[in-house]
Design a protein around this nucleic acid. Structure first.
Length: 856
RNA sequence: GGGCGUUUAGCUCAGCUGGUAGAGCGCCGCCCUUACAAGGCGGAGGUCGCAGGUUCGAGGCCUGCAGCGCCCACCA
């Protein structure tokens, strides 16, 4: 303990305490504890691709308050931080930061150094060089992130930090993959998949977003055959006419019923395609009959699959039409030449040319009508997704398995959601799944598949008989490691092997954060101590990805939930009520606010956002937080500063003191109940309100007596009672504030107590009640209200608060007057009142007769 | 199209299982009071989105409607 400083200040508290907490191991996890003493938290590993913003601060601070509460309740938190550094987000950052791009055909250059500044044209580098740059940059970013979190005061144990590209994570991820495969829960399939033509990788359903996209509706004539009339269709993608395999209408549609089974010919190419019926065709859309292409959108895929139509793919993986026309029986002699004119063009370029050709040929009915319509994008992408047929790895997720889907919905109900209504997002996601989880990505910086494929003597790769790594070898990199029974010289050779070239989607690894942090299989004792975990705090926007996939993996691997509870935090909105996000460019960076107001002040703002509620960023709230922190310093200085000759050890004898402690016990009950409900915001609000009342009323009421200057109750016993109560109250209030404002509470604690407030037990209401004896809170309440009336009278007469009062008459209900009688001495001292009378009445009224002039 | 949430003072939000409307900011006024002037004390300000209903009593429950936000969906 250091004693009370002359001039308490918030400046420098973050650096001071962050350092001491680390040095003292304040938040170090004690793994010797039993499972039921541990509170295990599956902390979101932030994506390390730039800077943290207020949205991150918001959610992580809230989770930290819950963890701090649990720690004070006597639980031992297992509270690690991770960095989600693998994946496309990191690749993009590296590409921009260093001005490079990965070209996997190049060989490793050990002398490669990135340029000081990124150049105009991206420098092609080999995959190993690219991965090195990714590792280098993420390490820098992670240090900056850690510093930021320490400054925010997160009570994580930094010795437990993991990364999703780290060796431990790779081993867990590959092991889990092998086990999924062994149980038939992971499989590979060659199928049409949504494809990002810029990143040149497949993407999963969870990464899609619909965007309103400007396009045009084209009305196009297909030629009737055998004397039947022409058919008009509408499409936004005329460039896919060469990929057309059928027209489709609803089976009940009178207009087309007679033509099901007959054929029409495509414009420009003269390919004969059938008219087919399917219930997904909607009569009131366009002309009621649609062109099925391979593949224009996901409905095309459904039609193609269910109606067993042929494949005529034209879209290449680079987003350009492939060089050769598809296999077709084109009757138009110009078909081949027309197609080759389109080959190599992007979808947009091809569309323009096709429209010209259609117009010339007379197949275009009217002019294209501009429309905007929802189009599927990769959430990080800038061009519409295409659909191309590729071989990919999938994990079953219930999309094609009603039984599994049902079980996963049940898992969602087993999980306790805070707030509860967030569960509906999970359920609507599970119930809307339409494809299994596509986990392979045609990218470079990620966890590889521990898989090779045999190459037949003919040179054909046999994907059906993958060569799997043994678990003892993990992690492996199939591009440099060799499968058992082969040697490196056989790579890519007939009779040899090839490595799986893909990496896993980042979620395929980060869905295993409980297993990674708990060192599943690598440290069985630790794992059994922390798994299943207690809490998953996270944002609502990643319920469909992170939360769902983690539940899925745990269900497959352990037959249980990964955690018992999840706390979903809301969005941070800018003052115009728009979501703050990097892409919108309306983010504010936390550092500036840490600098200006201090971490406790920023945390105070975050704690004001109720669980799951979107909250506006509000500098005003941060200022209020700073004011509260300063008030805590000053009130504590007073409380501890009045300790004079009389020690604060005697019994609590005075009615006002007992009544205050009774009220405080009720506050402890309320705050505890709020935290029990994961409602840190309610806990803070109640504590804060009590604290301001404590400062305004109790401190004023007790001040003279605590100084030992009271004439009415000037005994040492009454003074000791005041001092004892002040310390009991301060100790309680600091502990109630500690989860929210860890720095200022720790600072004050250190003035007069040993150890960290954050390892102190949560306040005990029954102990406070024993000090209060049977005195109720009413005396404290009435005393405060009467004092308020006296102040009001002084204000109304424009007098100083120090103005003397000749006489006060309190009119009030009998029980309230009785309570007042117990504390009348303190009220008179605080109000400088010479005489105080009471009159029974229905409600409180106070007549105040001020002295003519203030006593000298 | 389906679902979830939300609508309370000028602003940002509390108001837990129904019992005579709350806080902070902003605004106005007073006070340099020995914990605190980057402060303290006090004041003004709301028919709780709209329309019905249940109840002795509704901001809180029920029905309908509207605005806003979000989630989900096979939108030619």
């Amino acid at each position: 303990m250091t004693g009370v400083p002359e001039k308490p200040s918030l400046e420098g508290l973050e650096a001071k305490w962050a350092q001491r907490w680390e040095a003292g191991g304040t938040y170090r996890f004690d793994r010797s504890k039993a499972r039921d003493e541990i509170y295990a938290v599956d902390t979101p590993p932030p994506t390390v691709s730039g800077s943290l913003h207020m949205g991150s601060v918001f959610g992580y601070a809230q989770a930290d308050a819950i963890v701090r509460y649990q720690r004070m309740r006597g639980k031992e938190p297992f509270y690690p931080m991770g960095w989600d550094d693998n994946g496309l987000a990191t690749e993009r950052r590296v590409q921009n930061y260093y001005g490079v791009r990965c070209d996997p055909t190049l060989h490793h250059d050990p002398d490669f150094r990135p340029p000081e500044k990124p150049g105009k044209h991206a420098i092609p580098v080999s995959r190993p060089n690219f991965v090195e740059l990714c590792e280098k940059l993420t390490e820098i970013d992670e240090q900056a992130f850690e510093e930021m979190w320490r400054r925010l005061g997160l009570s994580v144990d930094w010795s437990l930090t993991y990364t999703t590209i780290g060796e431990g994570a790779q081993r867990v991820s590959q092991r889990a993959f092998l086990r999924l495969f062994a149980r038939g829960e992971a499989y590979q399939s060659e199928a049409p998949t949504l494809w990002d033509v810029d990143d040149r990788t497949a993407v999963a359903q969870a990464e899609l977003e619909d965007r309103e996209h400007a396009g045009a509706s084209h009305r196009i004539r297909f030629g009737g055959t055998d004397g039947a009339g022409d058919v008009l269709i509408e499409t936004t993608r005329p460039e896919l006419i060469p990929a057309c395999v059928a027209l489709v209408a609803h089976p009940d549609d009178e207009r087309y019923r007679d033509r099901f089974g007959s054929f029409v010919t495509t414009p420009l190419f003269g390919v004969s395609v059938p008219i087919v019926a399917h219930h997904l065709a909607e009569p009131d859309k366009g002309t009621g009959i649609a062109m099925i292409c391979t593949f224009g959108d996901v409905t095309d895929v459904v039609w193609w699959r269910e109606l067993q139509l042929p494949t005529r793919s034209v879209m290449g993986r680079d987003g350009r039409l492939v060089a050769e026309p598809p296999e077709w029986d084109a009757t138009d002699p110009e078909a081949g030449a027309r197609y080759r004119e389109l080959a190599g063009k992007t979808a947009k370029q091809a569309r323009e040319r096709v429209v010209e050709l259609l117009r010339e040929s007379g197949a275009l009915e009217g002019e294209p009508q501009p429309i905007t319509h929802p189009v599927k994008f990769y959430e990080r992408g800038s061009r519409p997704l295409e659909i191309v047929t590729t071989r990919q790895w999938y994990i079953r997720n219930g999309a094609h398995d009603p039984e599994l889907r049902k079980v996963l919905v049940e898992r969602g109900r087993e999980l306790r959601w805070h707030p509860p209504h967030m569960r509906s997002r999970y359920e609507s996601w599970v119930e809307g799944l339409n494809t299994d989880w596509l986990i392979s990505r045609q990218r470079f910086f990620g966890v590889t598949f521990p898989v090779w494929y045999p190459v037949a003597d003919t040179g054909q790769v046999d994907y059906e008989s993958p060569l799997l790594a043994r678990e003892e070898r993990l992690p492996v990199d199939p591009s440099s490691d060799v499968p058992d029974g082969y040697d490196e010289s056989q790579r890519g050779q007939p009779g040899g092997f090839v490595g799986d070239p893909d990496v896993m989607d980042t979620w395929a690894t980060s869905s295993l954060t409980p297993q990674i942090a708990g060192r599943w299989e690598d440290d069985p004792e630790l794992f059994s101590g922390v798994f299943p975990m207690d809490l998953r705090p996270q944002g609502g926007e990643i319920i469909r990805t992170w939360l769902f996939s983690t539940v899925l993996r745990s269900h497959f691997e352990h037959g249980s939930l990964p955690w018992s509870d999840t706390a979903i935090n809301g969005w941070v909105l800018d003052p115009d009520r728009k979501k703050m996000s990097k892409s919108k460019g309306n983010v504010v960076t936390p550092v500036e606010y840490f600098d200006r107001f201090g971490s406790d002040a920023v945390r105070y703002w975050a704690m004001n956002g109720s669980p799951g509620v979107d909250t506006a960023f509000d500098e005003g709230q941060i200022k209020v937080g700073r004011r509260l922190a300063i008030k805590i310093l000053n009130a504590s200085k007073f409380t501890l500063g009045v300790r004079g000759t009389v020690a604060a050890t005697g019994p609590v004898t005075e009615a006002l003191d007992r009544s205050l402690l009774c009220a405080l016990a009720e506050l402890v009950d309320e705050a505890t109940a709020a935290f029990h409900d994961y409602d840190y915001a309610r806990a803070l609000k109640q504590t804060e309100r009590f604290f301001w009342g404590f400062c305004d009323d109790y401190l004023e009421l007790v001040k003279q007596r605590a100084y030992g200057a009271s004439s009415a109750a000037g005994s040492d016993g009454a003074t000791a009672s005041a001092r004892r109560t002040l310390e009991l109250a301060l100790g309680t209030l600091l502990r109630l504030f500690a989860p929210h404002l860890p720095f200022v509470t720790e600072e004050v604690w250190s003035w007069w107590r040993e150890g960290s407030v954050h390892r102190e037990p949560w306040p005990d209401a029954s102990e406070l009640r024993s000090h209060a004896a049977d005195t109720g809170r009413l005396a404290y309440v009435v005393a405060g209200e009467v004092l308020g009336e006296i102040r009001k009278a002084k204000t109304a007469q424009q007098r100083s608060m120090r103005a003397d009062v000749d006489n006060v008459v309190v009119h009030d209900a009998p029980e309230r007057l009785a309570a007042l009688a117990l504390v009348a001495g303190d009220v008179r001292e605080a109000g400088r009142v010479r005489a105080l009378e009471t009159v029974e009445a229905g409600e409180l009224r106070v007549d105040v007769e001020l002295a003519e002039s203030d006593a000298a």
